[in-house]
Design a protein around this nucleic acid. Sequence first.
DNA 1: TGGGCATCTTGTCAATGTCAAGTTAAGGTG
DNA 2: CACCTTAACTTGACATTGACAAGATGCCCA
Lengths: 182, 182
Amino acid sequence: MKAYHHGDLRRALLDAAVDALGEAGPAALSLRDLARRAGVSHAAPAHHFGDKAGLLTAVAIDGYRALALALAEARVRTGSYREMGVAYVGFAVGHRAHFEVMFRPDLHRPDDPELRLAATKAGNALAAGARDLPDGPGPAAGLAGWSTAHGFATLWLSGALPRSLGPDPIAAARTVLGAPAL
Amino acid sequence: MKAYHHGDLRRALLDAAVDALGEAGPAALSLRDLARRAGVSHAAPAHHFGDKAGLLTAVAIDGYRALALALAEARVRTGSYREMGVAYVGFAVGHRAHFEVMFRPDLHRPDDPELRLAATKAGNALAAGARDLPDGPGPAAGLAGWSTAHGFATLWLSGALPRSLGPDPIAAARTVLGAPAL
DNA sequence: TGGGCATCTTGTCAATGTCAAGTTAAGGTG
DNA sequence: CACCTTAACTTGACATTGACAAGATGCCCA
């Protein structure tokens, strides 16, 4: 056994947090439960993250980095802003735990520098795709696309969308994101 | 003093909940704090709502009813689905506490019958507006509009949108919702 | 080899959600 | 008007949690 010095307790706690968030949502997350899952004492998480908000800030940072990668990948793969929106939905559904923490400022530290940087980079990845749009419309079109993808993702996750869309969020997103504007 | 029998403790607790949610978000909501605000004992809320999820379910029900009213009002006033989207954003910003609970199934009881009914009615109000759209596109257009309005509202509330949109969410929403589709 | 320091533990405290049991008053029935 | 059923609220308790303080452990480097 390793007793003291876990090896990479920080990573283990983050992984446990993602698991726990996926099982019961952010409201039910407990630092002590994460410690139990990682096999350490109840106060160990505080050493690495300070407090609960610190841990969730780290989760959000991981999330923004993964989102930026997913968006950039979709852009080089398809060259389509709409498909970047589909990828955005795919990230939200596939990394629900991260996604739910990222856009909830009351759960983390919104002004953490590292968080701000990661969020900005993800925003830049999106904005780069928006510039590929068939030119003409102003910068509002990029925000409209972001809003649509983000709204579809959160509505899907909250279970508010009608079942007629079918079970596959990616296919449903491709349908809805292709619909004409308001 | 009224000692026992508050008069309308249920309503007082719901009002206190909306205040508290507006001040610190759902994560910091405490039933005991609500009881203190209403001047009753710490276990009084449980009698009216069962538990925390029950109270938040009641908040969500109030929210869906108010949203349905706001959407119907916007429809008769403007006849425009786009302006219903603007009203949707206005509701989210003006009733942030309700809005944040409504779309968070882990905070309330998603299968509560009264909740389902209220949510369905609000959905019908939106769907009615979608039928006014310049025909041609399928039913996906209604969902796209909903997604855009919902996404803009949640992004605005989370502070993720760029400051270049200005301080007025209604004006910003009118700009973004009018942008062309993806 | 030995000291410094990050890492983790143990112990504790106030606060919270929830349950059980008791207390008070309001409203209907005789 | 007396009675009593029942809803509304209180009191008390318990396990759990986040956070803090102080101590224990072992790795790394001088």
